[in-house]
């Protein structure tokens, strides 16, 4: 196991697998968020019910919000592995490359900006948690449990919409290279599948981004109305 982590391929495999875990979460989160598109209901927004359900799942056998916390711990571990792995690989690369940097010959913009988009995504995630989970950034009205209302008020502000658009775009860019790269590192890419996997990476990123962005955009443009 030690040899695996210390080898460049082993470490990258770990980065890929942890990335896959993070992407899996993103997909689930995106799909869950789509509940907001059902609207305000009659003071009983579907997305609010969904949020409660997540916390009550498994009661009384499991403690309140148990599943949520398990997911949070797993994500945190994955994040630590992902970032540590990449930081170590970047350090090794800098030493291996030496002082003369490599001129880009054909590498994609997405691949060249992985660290930038990664940092942006991390910053964005911290912001997002501070806004909608810990309810710390309460520039707009925030109330525990009132998910639809919280979203509505936040996304009346152009600057929040902008932050979310930028954050999600960073995610999309990161995923476009990340998905294919993880597949290659894990050895799943073969000549007859290469095109398909690249396509899946591109379209997957677009679909995930569109799914996420549909929420702020619908609130901002008034497609989704005020809470009851």
């Amino acid at each position: 196991m030690r040899e695996f982590w210390s080898s460049s391929i082993g470490k990258k495999i770990a980065v890929g697998i942890s990335g896959a875990i993070l992407v899996a979460y993103l997909v689930l989160h995106m799909v869950g968020n789509l509940n907001a598109l059902y609207g305000a209901g009659d003071g009983d927004a579907r997305v609010d019910d969904y949020a409660h359900w997540l916390r009550e799942f498994g009661e009384p056998l499991l403690p309140h919000a148990f599943v949520l916390w398990v997911v949070r711990v797993v994500l945190l571990c994955a994040l630590v592995v992902h970032v540590t792995g990449i930081v170590q690989l970047r350090r090794r690369a800098a030493a291996a490359r030496g002082p003369h940097k490599a001129k880009p010959i054909g590498r994609s913009l997405a691949s060249r900006t992985m660290v930038v988009t990664g940092v942006l995504v991390l910053a964005f995630v911290v912001f997002h948690i501070l806004q909608f989970t810990t309810l710390t950034i309460d520039v707009t009205p925030l109330r525990e449990g009132a998910v639809y209302a919280n979203l509505y008020w936040a996304f009346q502000k152009w600057y929040f919409v902008l932050i979310y658009v930028l954050g999600v775009c960073a995610i999309a860019f990161h995923l476009r290279h990340g998905i294919w790269s993880a597949a290659q590192t894990l050895g799943y890419v073969r000549p007859n599948r290469d095109r398909a996997i690249r396509s899946a990476a591109t379209w997957g990123s677009i679909v995930i981004a569109a799914g996420f962005l549909s929420i702020p955009v619908c609130f901002w443009t008034g497609v989704l109305g005020a809470p009851a």
Partner: peptide, 17 residues
């Protein structure tokens, strides 16, 4: 791979250059 790493070569992040 062990030898490759020992020689100080970097790791692959799939740029494809």
């Amino acid at each position: 791979v062990l030898a490759m790493d020992a020689e100080g070569f970097g790791g692959c992040t799939n740029y494809g250059e």
